[in-house]
């Protein structure tokens, strides 16, 4: 360790910590993206300030004393603590992820639906059911006429093991969250589109961003 330059003694633990944080953010999925957005500004500021400080420190300082063995030892211990903390964080996040991260749910492609009629969509999940099924209905018109997409109300009723549950109302582009009990075997979404007026709307309905929040 004594052979490392002063820069390396800082950069190695910094790189390890950054690597660990990146892995953790990747495991975090959407939340990781949000955390990364929030951290981008302060990290950017600190990064630039550190770079500026580094340039300043690189200037020759003929009058300054050379670092002693005690200082090198202190820096090495700090570096080891940072590495251990980074590794611990990565392991902790991985364990949390395994229990709590969202699971992808599939409900198939876009379906053509006439207004005021029920359509059942079969939902499958990469794991056991239990939690909140979130989905965002995306509607698109099938013809040139009609004011259908924006004024439409989308009713989504989960059908758990053949038993219809309470319906939830949402709109085009607005997320709906449906409670799904743990232990459910078969899950369907019964979808109905209601549109004001006698417009006889036909719409393509796609449930996007479907996930099981646990």
């Amino acid at each position: 360790m004594g052979m490392l330059t002063r820069g390396a003694r800082w950069s190695v633990p910094l790189l390890v910590a950054t690597f660990a944080l990146t892995i953790a953010l990747l495991f975090w999925g959407d939340r990781g993206g949000f955390v990364a957005d929030v951290l981008a500004l302060p990290i950017g500021v600190v990064g630039v300030l550190l770079a500026a400080a580094g340039i300043r420190a690189a200037r020759p300082d003929p009058g300054g004393p050379a670092p002693g063995m005690r200082a090198v030892l202190t820096q090495t211990v700090v570096a080891l603590i940072v590495v251990a903390a980074g590794a611990g964080a990565a392991i902790g996040v991985s364990a949390w992820h395994a229990r709590h991260v969202d699971l992808t749910v599939s409900v198939g492609d876009a379906v053509r639906m006439a207004q005021d009629t029920d359509t059942d969509l079969k939902a499958t999940v990469d794991g056991p059911w239990g939690g909140e099924l979130v989905a965002v209905p995306e509607l698109s018109p099938t013809g040139d006429l009609g004011d259908c997409v924006l004024p439409a109300t989308v009713l989504v009723r989960p059908v758990i093991d053949g038993q219809p549950q309470a319906a939830y109302r949402t709109r085009h582009g607005e997320q709906v969250a449906l409670p799904i009990p743990a232990g459910a075997k078969r899950v369907q979404l019964r979808v109905r589109v209601e549109v004001p007026g006698e417009q006889k709307c036909e719409l393509l309905v796609r449930m996007s961003d479907t996930r099981l929040r646990r």
Binding site: A40, L41, V45, G47, V48, L49, A52
Partner: peptide, 15 residues
Amino acid sequence: RTAWVALFACLALTG
């Protein structure tokens, strides 16, 4: 000067 550089860099980084 360093602060201005930092601010400018952040705007460039965050868009």
